[in-house]
Design a protein around this nucleic acid. Structure first.
Lengths: 197, 197
DNA sequence: TCTGTTATGGATTGTTCACTCAATAACTCA
DNA sequence: TGAGTTATTGAGTGAACAATCCATAACAGA
């Protein structure tokens, strides 16, 4: 009953996500989005209402994919504890690599949470989902006898999230590859010592 | 031999720092700076060359003050280890409070390091100074018999920096006061367990 | 083949951006 | 007192910003 779209929505969303991810929300202009997606301004606004609406939609998609991917990667490891620490230190031999531009959710949360309620809500959701995932994994590691049965799963999960985000921060702050590797090793050793049986 | 300035440079720098700190570099307009400082555009440009030059100068000042303040706060504690952990968890009963807008250096490093070499250089300097300070403090805590003498001071310092930045990230991401407190406690307990004698 | 609906394309809106120009004012030293 | 130097003032630069207007195009169902 109406003119059909010439573009594939998912393809457009992927291109827009790459642009937001590379440059950040504020530094991404609508013109950059039209160039990256190939859409005209009016098509883009017609389909996604505004730059902000488009971004929120992309960020929520990202959050869901990230949560699923993280859960899959962690639980795929035969050792629950190793699967978890690999994620925390982004050291899974390539499967959980930390992209040069960092995590889109972490970047957006740090830059926008204070002034954008929708971003903050997504950040909180990502945090609580990760917390639950990590706590479950820690419980399994305890049942497997890999770590001390006395540590509190949820509290340990919180500490691991802090460590993970700290490493990501060091990565983004540009301290250098060698120093970053040392920091990852140091963090991992601290974590291991704290849960040793 | 020339017309004297009507403004006090340090007062202007303080006002500009507050503005950059509150809104971030990109979101701070030159107009916002002139309003915050009371200077006209031309006076501001005459004294500081450009928005970027002004920012770099402010950031370097901040770095130096922060380094001195951190060292003073940490070493003032009668217990080297407690002084250190108080700083890491921003939990010194007010002395090392984490401002709502986070640390100016951490914010700037996360947002700008990738694209601004001068910011990256300052971030690296801040990191290595903090690393040296923490490592010295850990050695003292070991000599005091507060923690395990076998842990490597420099590696432990790296882990602590990661934890500290992770906590700051959680703060900025807006997870909420209660949850942040739980994360701080969790991180502290993990750190304590990892260095227990 | 019409009619209704949505998509597209290009030009354009007013606003804000960092920054500059030209004129004048305020000082010091000779 | 006048020459030299720098500070201040206010208006204004072109470029980029998010978003919109309007005319036209492409489809579905009647």
């Amino acid at each position: 009953m109406a003119r059909p779209r010439k573009f594939d929505e998912q393809t457009v969303l992927n291109a827009a996500r790459a642009t937001f991810w590379r440059d950040g929300y504020a530094a991404t202009s609508v013109q950059a989005l039209t160039e990256a997606t190939g859409l005209g301004t009016q098509s883009l606004y017609g389909a996604f209402s505004s730059k902000h609406d488009l971004f929120i939609r992309i960020l929520d998609d990202y959050r869901a994919r990230q949560a699923a991917g993280l859960a899959a990667a962690i639980t795929a490891d035969p050792s629950p504890w190793h699967g978890l620490t690999s994620a925390v230190t982004f050291e899974d031999g390539g499967r959980l690599d930390l992209p040069p531009q960092g995590c889109l959710m972490a970047n957006s949360a740090a830059a926008l949470s204070a002034e954008d309620e929708q971003v903050q809500a997504l950040a909180r959701r990502a945090y609580s989902d990760t917390l639950a995932l990590f706590a479950r994994q820690i419980t399994q590691a305890q049942e497997n006898g890999e770590i001390d049965a006395d540590v509190d799963p949820e509290q340990t999960a919180r500490a691991l999230i802090a460590v993970m985000q700290g490493i990501e921060f060091l990565h983004k702050s540009g301290i250098g590859e060698d120093e970053l590797q040392l920091a990852k090793t140091a963090a991992l050793e601290m974590v291991e010592r704290s849960v040793a049986r």
